[in-house]
């Protein structure tokens, strides 16, 4: 099962390397990992999406907690939480397809953020399902490049 784990860590040199090294050394699979500074510049928040059975997830949590730079770890999967992912997607367009693409972007509440005669880039924010759905639809228009942030999450309340 896929779990979404969030960790507050010291914003220090080498912390990201420590976490990725931990996952590779223990054979855990990361589906996505997003890192960024919080309102306190000495603290970063990591959002880690990882797949595994209960035993593996328990180990992931414990190993993350064990890291010296980890301030707090929580598994949000079963808790009320909000999560978002952002995708930038670039595709080709022609006078024939342009209107349809723009319409679809609107339906998905996306934004066109770059446009030139050959291709256009769209920003989509939402759940991973929504992002995957949009990407699937765009395949027929010819996707050129995709960049995704991976999920970020916060507990509710």
């Amino acid at each position: 099962m896929q779990h979404i784990i969030t960790a507050l860590v010291e914003n220090r040199f080498g912390v990201l390397a420590n976490i990725s090294s931990l996952f590779s050394a223990r054979g855990f699979n990361i589906d996505s990992l997003a890192v960024g500074e919080t309102h306190d510049p000495s603290i970063s928040r990591m959002t880690i999406v990882v797949t595994g059975d209960d035993r593996i997830i328990q180990q992931v949590m414990k190993q993350l907690n064990k890291m010296i730079d980890t301030i707090r770890v929580s598994d949000l999967t079963e808790e009320a939480h909000v999560e978002r992912e952002l995708m930038l997607i670039k595709m080709g367009h022609t006078p024939k397809t342009r209107a349809e693409i723009v319409q679809l972007v609107e339906i998905f509440k996306g934004r066109i953020i770059d446009f030139n005669p050959r291709d256009l880039s769209v920003e989509i924010v939402g759940s991973s399902d929504k992002i995957l759905a949009f990407m699937d639809i765009m395949r027929s228009f010819g996707i050129k490049e995709v960049a995704r942030t991976g999920r970020v999450a916060l507990p509710r309340g």
Binding site: R55, Q58, Q59, K62, N65, K66
Partner: peptide, 8 residues
């Protein structure tokens, strides 16, 4: 003393 050693 090491929680990660438990139930590993």
């Amino acid at each position: 003393i090491d929680p990660s050693a438990i139930s590993k």
